[in-house]
Amino acid sequence: MEKGIVRKLLKEVYRFKNIDSIDALAHQRIIKLQLTLKTGLSMSKYSETSIDSQDEFLRIIDVLKNPEFGLTKFKFDQFIN
């Protein structure tokens, strides 16, 4: 997998959710925390290093597609391929 792909994905997610306000850090914290809870994968680790497994990356994408994240119109395709 491309190095830093999860970090790139998360940055796009933050931009999509327009997280540029004073609440930005709090939003980012919750997104990372919820992703970790639901995938069982450390966002800290995968934000900073290359991801070894396509399956693990797809797990992250699958969880992000959950309506709770409010990303229904987010373009995941550009990251999956």
Binding site: Q28, K32, L33, T36, L37, G40, S42, M43, S44, S47
Partner: peptide
């Protein structure tokens, strides 16, 4: 434990 990011720890 598992670290979601930014020094958090679950």
């Amino acid at each position: 434990g598992i670290d979601p990011g930014d020094g958090e720890l679950l």
